[in-house]
């Protein structure tokens, strides 16, 4: 009974899993740039060892459980008293140590490598893009080009991009799995990461760190273009896109899921959220929910303090009750 019960459902599930697993072409296993490829190499290396562990232990487990199972035939068998075996115990301490060493060395190498411009691109001048995450959208500023986009980022293919990451509010995580790993974006802090796209194409990026109602919709696209197409796009944006003002920027920061937007200047002119002493832009009233309302405290360094010039400002009177617009998926 033991055997039969086990095998039937297993036989049913495994092919489903394997099939769907394989033809999904999982994005982590399909890297589109040197950074993601570097990580994949490390993953594959670890998979070899982990598979080895799984096979050995599963095999040993199956063998022992089968061989020493209680049957009617061995009813009178009295197992020996066995305290252990120093030799064996040393062996299975040392083999894991060796495996850990084998995994540690490439891990550390890769960790250090990922901090630098990817190999082979050292001579190309990186483009800097400031990424600012807000609830629940991604803002990309191109300080060198003087343009800004929301929820999509165009980059030249085959060029290292120096992403400088920060957040206007909650902590988020910037992840483009096809191109590389992720990193947190935090207010008043700057994190940094290099990514390169091998060739033109469109890749999905998103926030992975939960940050409230609109989290599920916090996606963006990375469009890698040929350098010429990129230059042309920049030129177009500079001449055609509207200008962002501080006021419209504050509106942009209010919690919402947005589509794509493009501007011909950047918000870095008035605020860089990565700055330790940057003003903060929070709108607690807009996050009200169905729960019992709690007291909201004034932030000493909130941008709203400026306009009211010293007058104390009662957030509760600031009627912004217009329903918070989070939650819905407002695709792009």
């Amino acid at each position: 009974m033991f055997k039969k019960n086990y095998l039937v459902p297993l036989a049913a599930i495994l092919p489903v899993l394997l099939l769907s697993g394989c033809d999904m072409n999982m994005v982590v296993f399909d890297p589109q740039g040197p950074v993601a490829r570097e990580i994949l190499d490390l993953i594959n290396w670890s998979l070899v060892f982990m598979l080895l562990v799984v096979v050995v232990v599963f095999g040993l487990f199956g063998y022992i459980v089968w061989k020493y199972r209680a049957t009617s035939k061995n009813k009178d068998y009295e197992p020996p008293e066995e305290h252990g075996s120093t030799k064996l115990e040393i062996i299975w301490t040392f083999i894991p140590i060796l495996i850990v060493i084998a995994l540690t060395i490439p891990t550390i190498k890769t960790i250090y490598k990922l901090e630098k411009v990817p190999e082979g691109y050292e001579n190309k001048k990186p483009i800097t893009i400031n990424v600012t995450s807000a609830d629940w959208k991604w803002i990309f500023s191109y300080p060198e080009q003087g343009i800004e986009t929301v929820n999509y980022v165009n980059i030249p293919a085959d060029t290292p991009i120096n992403f400088k990451l920060t957040s206007a509010g909650t902590m988020q995580s910037f992840w483009v799995p096809a191109l590389g790993g992720q990193k947190y974006t935090m207010a008043k802090m700057e994190t940094q990461m290099y990514l390169v796209a091998d060739h033109p194409g469109e890749y999905i990026g998103r926030n992975t760190n939960f940050n409230g109602k609109g989290y599920a919709g916090m996606e963006f696209t990375v469009e890698a273009k040929s350098p010429q197409a990129f230059a042309k796009w920049v030129k177009d944006v500079k001449s055609k896109a509207p200008k962002l003002t501080e006021k419209s920027y504050i509106n942009l920061l209010k919690p919402s899921n947005l589509g794509r937007e493009t501007f011909s200047n950047t918000h870095l002119a008035w605020v860089n959220h990565a700055d330790m002493n940057a003003k903060i832009y929070t709108f607690p009233e807009l996050y009200r929910n169905h729960d019992y309302p709690g007291q909201i405290f004034k932030d000493p360094d909130n941008h709203t303090n400026e306009k009211t010039e010293g007058k104390s400002m009662d957030m509760n009177n600031m009627d912004m009750s217009g329903k918070s617009n989070g939650g819905e998926h407002s695709g792009h």
């Binding site: 993953i43 599963f58 995994l103 891990t107 939960f210």
Partner: peptide, 21 residues
């Protein structure tokens, strides 16, 4: 064992950049 081996995979800092969250 499956939980533990994947734990070791997550423990490899650089690889975790792809698994995290």
């Amino acid at each position: 064992i499956i939980g533990g081996t994947t734990g070791v995979m997550l423990a490899m800092g650089a690889a975790d950049y792809q698994y995290h969250n």
